[in-house]
Computed example of a mutant assay.
Amino acid sequence: MTTVRIKGFKIFKDRHGRMRCYHRETSQKIDLVKAPLGSAAFFTECEKITAIAEANKAKAPKVGTLGGLIQSYYETEHFKNLAPATRRDYRQCADFLEPIRDTPIHTIDTPLVAGIHDKAAQKIGWRRANMLRTFLSEVFRFAIPKGLISANFATGVIPKPRPAKLAYANRPWEREECDIVLEHAPPHVRVVLAVLMNTGLDPSDALNLRRDQIDGETIWGVRGKTGVEVAIPIGPTLHAALKQAPQHDAPALLANSRGEQWTYNGFSTVWHRFKTGLEAEGLIQPGLTLKGLRHTVATTLREAGLDERRIADLLGQKTLSMARHYSRSANLAAKNRETMATLETENARRARIVKPSAKSVKPEPKG
C-alpha cells in the first residue's frame, strides 16, 4: 500500500486496524469513509482544514499588541469571576477595539486612549464609551504586574459626562404610580413588583431568589453583578404581599402564571406589555422601569434622612469579599432592619398624603 503523508496531519492505524487521520494543530478529524485516504476528496479536506487553521491563526491576537493584552486579561481569574453581564459588556468593548487590536504596546499612551475614548463617544454614545474606558483600565491594571505594559494609561482619561438634557434612564417612581401599578397588576406580576418596591433588589436578583434564601424574616442573597452579600429584612408590607401571592411548587420564590420560575426576559416582556397598556389608558406616565424601583427605594430613604452608607448597605453596594463570614451578614441584617422600618414608615406617610382619609375631606357647602 502506498504511504500517504500530508504536512500537519497525523495518519495512523488504530487498535482495530482502521486508518485514521487528524490535523495535529486543531485536532480536526477527516472522515476516511467519506474521503478515502489518497483520494481527491481526501486532499480537498486537508486543504480546507489547513486554510481554516491558518485563517484562525491570523485572527489570533499577537503578542506585544493591544489584542494580546486583552487576551491576557481574559485569562485572569478576575475576568472569569465577573458577572456574566459584565463579561458580555467587556467583550463588546473588545469588539469595538477589533480594528486596532494590532496596535503595538509601546505606542499606547494616555493621549491615544483619550482619542479612542472620544471616538467611541461619537460612535456608541457616552455611556458605552465610559464602559470602554473602564475595560481598558482593567486590562492595563492586570497587565502591569505581568510586565506587559508600563502603566495604566486609561486612568488619566476623563469620563464623559452625562448629557444635561438626557432624561433620567431609571427615574424613581412616584407613590401614586406604585399604587396604580400594584392595583392593576395580575397577581403573579404584582408580587414581583412588591418585592422590588420593598427590598431595593436588582430585578434579575429578585427573579432568581430561591425559597431557601428566606430565613425567618430575612432574605439572604448575593448581588449577581458584584458578588456582594445582602441581608434584607422582610417588612410587614412585603410579608403581606408574599402571603397573598399565587401558590406554586417551583423552588424559586417568584413564579409566572404557569408556576414556573420567571426568566428575566420573560418578566421584562410581560412587564412591558402591562406597562404599555396602563400608559395607553393614561393611568401612568412614560418612563417607569423595573430598575427604577431600586432608585425609588434609595431616593425614599435618602429623603427620609438616612445617610448614604446605610442605604448602600441595604442595596449591597459595598465592595466585599465573596468569602465574607455569615455572622458579619447577620450584623448587617440587624442594621438593615432599622433601615427597612424607616422605608415602611416613609411609604405609609406618603400614602396618607397621596390618599387623604375621608375625615379630612370637607363637604362642599350646600346651595
Results as ranks from 00 to 15, higher is better:
10 K>R: 15
11 I>L: 15
15 R>W: 09
18 R>K: 14
18 R>F: 14
20 R>M: 09
21 C>T: 06
22 Y>I: 04
27 S>W: 08
33 V>W: 03
34 K>Q: 07
34 K>W: 01
37 L>V: 00
37 L>C: 00
39 S>Y: 03
40 A>I: 02
41 A>K: 05
44 T>E: 07
48 K>Q: 13
56 N>T: 07
64 G>T: 08
66 L>K: 04
67 G>Q: 13
67 G>W: 14
73 Y>M: 02
76 T>V: 04
78 H>M: 06
79 F>C: 03
83 A>I: 10
86 T>R: 06
88 R>Y: 10
89 D>P: 01
91 R>I: 01
93 C>F: 02
101 R>E: 06
104 P>C: 08
106 H>C: 13
108 I>T: 13
111 P>E: 11
119 K>Q: 15
121 A>W: 07
125 G>S: 11
128 R>E: 12
138 E>Y: 03
140 F>W: 12
142 F>K: 03
142 F>M: 10
155 T>M: 10
157 V>Q: 11
163 P>Y: 01
163 P>C: 06
164 A>F: 04
165 K>S: 06
168 Y>I: 09
169 A>N: 11
171 R>N: 06
173 W>A: 01
174 E>C: 08
176 E>Y: 07
177 E>N: 06
178 C>S: 07
180 I>W: 04
184 H>C: 08
190 R>P: 00
202 D>C: 04
207 L>H: 02
217 E>A: 15
218 T>C: 11
220 W>S: 10
222 V>Y: 03
224 G>L: 01
227 G>A: 04
228 V>F: 06
229 E>C: 13
229 E>A: 15
230 V>Y: 02
233 P>Y: 12
235 G>H: 13
236 P>S: 14
238 L>E: 06
244 Q>K: 15
248 H>N: 05
248 H>P: 02
252 A>R: 10
259 G>T: 04
262 W>T: 00
262 W>R: 00
266 G>Q: 01
269 T>H: 00
281 E>K: 04
284 I>H: 00
287 G>C: 01
288 L>E: 00
294 R>D: 03
295 H>G: 04
304 A>P: 15
314 L>T: 02
315 L>A: 05
317 Q>G: 14
322 M>S: 12
322 M>R: 12
326 Y>W: 12
332 L>E: 09
334 A>M: 08
335 K>G: 14
337 R>C: 02
339 T>I: 07
341 A>Q: 14
344 E>G: 05
347 N>H: 10
349 R>K: 08
351 A>M: 10
354 V>C: 02
355 K>C: 11
357 S>D: 05
361 V>G: 05
